[in-house]
Design a protein around this nucleic acid. Structure first.
Length: 463
RNA sequence: UCCUCGGUAGCUCAGUGGUAGAGCGAUCGGCUGUUAACCGAUUGGUCGUAGGUUCGAAUCCCACCCGGGGAGCCA
């Protein structure tokens, strides 16, 4: 007897094979002399249909216990299906019920549920078709990311989750402390005395591993991080989480063009990989969630991304008849509506916008000739907006110091970052990719909270 | 945080001043190699919370809580 995953049985199972499956009952259709079950074990979108005949021992009582949500082990023989919708099915010989699920209280019904409702039962929603598909695609996506970088000889580096520098430059930080918050130590000025805190100074959850990734790139040439990131912004949108996963490659001896090339190759690679590994799930998204999913994937894989400079983007936006709520003018940051116009209407594919005005970008981005712009790049995807943000980094110590001064940043915490420019500095570049945004983009899921198992957003940290 | 829409049965929603409705689900029965099974019956409610107006409030007013969409911030 072999204990198999349902996906293997559906793909390769042959008649007369004896198998045992374990999983959760998705639906039961009971007839007079026998019953159909559909069992799912998370390995695939499709369920395995099981035939329970009335001749089974304890048929009546067992059947009563088996409902949507029950957990079972079933062994039996595979037979060709007499029905239309499946190639093969399992004729049960032995049935174990691990746990029943009271149909009067089990929240998942045999019908379509709204994503809002499913969010309120995050501990059960993975048992639905959509979330099963999302989590399998998410997994394939993560695997593809590692595989891509590993094939290219990138070192996966683990950057800290706790950081003491607040000038990483990306939004609000969560404070990390082990103070008794009802009795916070005060100094002579009656302010919080952080010297008594765990790290002897203010500490935060990281908003980016980039600065540390740069450190590692200055020893290993090509590295990447892939880990959780935290932003304490009070953001309530379909594309923001307080806790999300980010991928940040950092490449030594690389300029902005190399950075763009890598990012584009990277996105193409993971789309291709996921299509290959999760064809049924992707088909499901295309049919049930967003009917442009497969077209989009095809578009990504087979077309070159558009590449324009910020200055060109502004010209294009000024030229169009499209009305914008926010006026366009060289120097302003691109608004969501502008990004969407470029990616969705004008190019209908990802657009890489480069060389933004230095005033609207971070201090570490390399200053271009003429000192008006920096070597930044954003990849704008249809529907999602900014999916990747990157830049060539400023490797020249004097200019970096000048930029830090101009922006009035506190250098004390990142003296080590400046040291990299003192000792064997090299041109280098990198980018950050919001992992959930990629999964969103790939699956067509409208809300980012539905592509992570346990979303953290303002006022929401249950489960 | 701002703008906007919403919160009524387990779920999805209708109900705009006069005793609370439907579909689905669930329960019971029937029937059929079924597959979002089908047919019949039954079951179902502190109308988000707390005030107020009114003879009377799901409905009108105020405050608050929560959710969706959009914006900002960003990945």
């Amino acid at each position: 007897m072999t204990n198999q995953r349902i996906i293997e049985i559906l793909r390769h199972g042959q008649p007369d094979q004896t198998v045992t499956i374990q999983g959760w009952v998705r639906t039961k259709r009971d007839l007079k002399n026998f019953a159909f079950l559909e069992v799912n074990d998370g390995s695939s979108l499709a369920n395995l249909q099981v035939i329970l005949e009335a001749t089974l021992p304890d048929y009546e009582t067992s059947l009563k216990q088996i409902n949507n949500g029950s957990s079972v082990a079933i062994s039996g023989v595979l037979v060709p299906s007499e029905g239309k919708n499946q190639r093969i099915e399992l004729k049960a010989q032995n049935l174990t019920i691990y746990g029943d699920a009271d149909p009067t209280t089990y929240p998942l019904q045999k019908k379509r549920h709204s994503f809002e409702f499913l969010r309120s039962i995050s501990h059960l929603r993975s048992r639905t078709n959509t979330f099963g598909a999302v989590m399998r695609v998410r997994n394939a996506c993560a695997t593809a990311i590692h595989q891509f970088f590993q094939e290219k000889g990138f070192l996966w580096v683990h950057t800290p989750i706790i950081t003491a520098s607040d000038c990483e430059g990306a939004g609000e930080l969560f404070t990390v402390t082990n103070f008794n918050l009802d009795k916070i130590p005060k100094n002579k000025e009656n302010k919080t005395d952080y010297t008594q805190d765990f790290f002897g100074k203010k500490a935060y959850l990281t908003v980016s591993g980039q600065l540390q990734a740069e450190v590692m790139a200055m020893a290993f040439e090509n590295v990447y991080t892939f880990g959780p990131t935290f932003r304490a912004e009070n953001s309530n949108t379909s594309r923001h989480l307080a806790e999300f996963w980010m991928v940040e490659p950092e490449i030594a001896f690389c300029d902005l063009e190399g950075d763009q090339n890598l990012a584009e190759e990277f996105l193409k690679y993971i789309f291709k990989y996921v299509l290959e590994k999760c064809p049924e799930d992707m088909e499901f998204f295309d049919q049930r969630i967003d009917n442009s999913v497969l077209e989009t994937a095809d578009n990504i894989i087979n077309n070159e991304f558009a590449r324009i400079t910020y200055t060109e983007a502004i010209k294009l936006l000024e030229k169009t008849d499209q009305k914008f709520e926010f006026p366009v003018e060289w120097g302003v940051d691109l608004q969501s509506e502008h990004e969407r116009y470029l990616a969705e209407k004008l190019f209908k594919k990802p657009v890489i916008v480069t060389n933004y005005p230095k005033e609207i970008k971070a201090f570490y981005m390399r200053l271009d000739e003429g000192e008006k712009t920096v070597s930044a790049m954003d990849i704008l995807a249809p529907k999602i907006g900014e999916i990747i943000g990157g830049s060539q980094r400023e490797e020249r110590l004097d200019i970096l110091e000048r930029r830090i001064q101009e922006l009035n940043l506190n250098v004390e915490d990142i003296w080590w970052y400046l040291d990299l420019r003192k000792f064997g500095t090299v041109p280098h570049a990198g980018f950050g990719l919001g992992f959930e945004r990629v999964v969103q983009f790939m699956t067509g899921m409208a809300n980012i909270r539905d592509v992570i198992p346990f979303p953290r957003t303002p006022l929401n940290a249950d489960f």
